[in-house]
C-alpha cells in the first residue's frame, strides 16, 4: 500500500524528500493527485507503513506538511 505526503509548497516537498532519503525511507516525487490537492506541483510518495516514521522525521526537522493520504497511484 502506498501513501502520499502533501505539502503547502513544492519547496517543502523537495526538502522533505531529501530528508526522508537521508533517513533511508523509500520515497519518490510524483505529481500531486488532482483529487487530493489543488497544488500545481509535486508531492512525496512513500510506503503507507512508513507514514508514522516519515511524519516524525518531518516534524523533528520542522518541515511543514499538509497531511498524509493513502494513494496507490496509477
Amino acid at each position: 500500500m502506498k501513501a502520499v505526503i502533501l505539502f503547502h509548497s513544492t519547496n517543502h516537498a523537495i526538502w522533505a524528500e531529501n530528508e526522508l532519503k537521508e533517513s533511508k525511507i523509500l520515497c519518490k516525487m510524483i505529481s500531486v493527485p488532482r483529487h487530493l490537492s489543488s497544488d500545481c506541483g509535486y508531492c512525496v510518495q512513500i510506503d503507507a507503513d512508513d507514514g508514522e516514521k516519515a511524519s516524525s522525521i518531518l516534524n523533528a526537522k520542522n518541515i511543514e506538511f499538509d497531511n498524509i493520504e493513502n494513494y496507490e497511484g496509477e
Binding site: 509548497s9 513544492t10 519547496n11 516537498a13 523537495i14 526538502w15 531529501n18 516525487m29 510524483i30 505529481s31 500531486v32 500545481c40 506541483g41 509535486y42
Partner: peptide, 21 residues
C-alpha cells in the same frame, strides 16, 4: 520550471533551487 509541474525536469529544477537555499 521549478515547483509548477510534476515531471522529472521540474523536480530537478526544484532541487537546484532548494540546494541554493
Amino acid at each position: 520550471n521549478p515547483g509548477r509541474s510534476g515531471h522529472k525536469l521540474s523536480i530537478e529544477a526544484g532541487q537546484i533551487v532548494f540546494k541554493v537555499r
